[in-house]
């Protein structure tokens, strides 16, 4: 499934780019992210506790930064295994443009889920994915903007 969105962030393109490569900020932004450990500059391992309504599943997996074109764009890819729940994979093409109020961040997410969540939760998968990517980018924007946001 594909999702897209745009955020205006009150910071320069360079500042946003730096944040996009900062594991600490990424961890704060990824909903339910319990740990994000750096393997290399572009590779991380992550533990994410996803909670959608009654469903609670822990995903472990990798996050990679690809197609780096500083400070304009990159692709954030990830895949996680959630045991019985199944798995999730996705990529987000993120690009930055200068904007009157700072920087315009445009994302295009392509995500897939598999296993039990795909099999029995199809009516909710789209909404959940949208909610999680909105959460990620809005938190990301908030963290850069220095706004208070309590990560779950």
């Amino acid at each position: 499934m594909k999702l897209e969105g745009t955020y205006i962030i009150n910071a320069s393109k360079e500042e946003v780019w730096k944040a996009m490569n900062d594991p600490a900020i990424l961890q704060q932004a990824i909903p339910g992210c319990e740990s994000l450990e750096k393997i290399s500059d572009t590779q991380f391992t992550a533990v994410i506790k996803a909670k959608i309504g009654p469903v609670k599943a822990s995903f472990t997996g990798e996050v990679n930064l690809e197609n780096l074109n500083p400070p304009h764009s990159y692709t954030l890819t990830g895949e996680g295994k959630g045991g019985l729940a199944g798995f999730a994979t996705g990529s987000a093409d993120v690009s930055l443009n200068e904007h009157n109020d700072g920087t315009e961040l445009i994302y295009l997410v392509d995500a897939q889920v598999g296993g039990k969540i795909a099999q029995i939760g199809s009516r909710l998968v789209g909404g959940a994915a949208k909610k999680l990517s909105d959460k990620f980018f809005s938190r990301f924007a908030a963290v850069i903007n220095g706004e208070e946001e309590n990560p779950e």
């Binding site: 897939q112 889920v113 598999g114 296993g115 795909a118 099999q119 029995i120 199809s122 009516r123």
Partner: peptide, 15 residues
């Protein structure tokens, strides 16, 4: 079946 992932989307009586 999801054309990209090959997952069975109608995998229960919910769908």
């Amino acid at each position: 079946y999801d054309k990209d992932s090959g997952q069975l989307v109608t995998g229960s009586y919910m769908d």
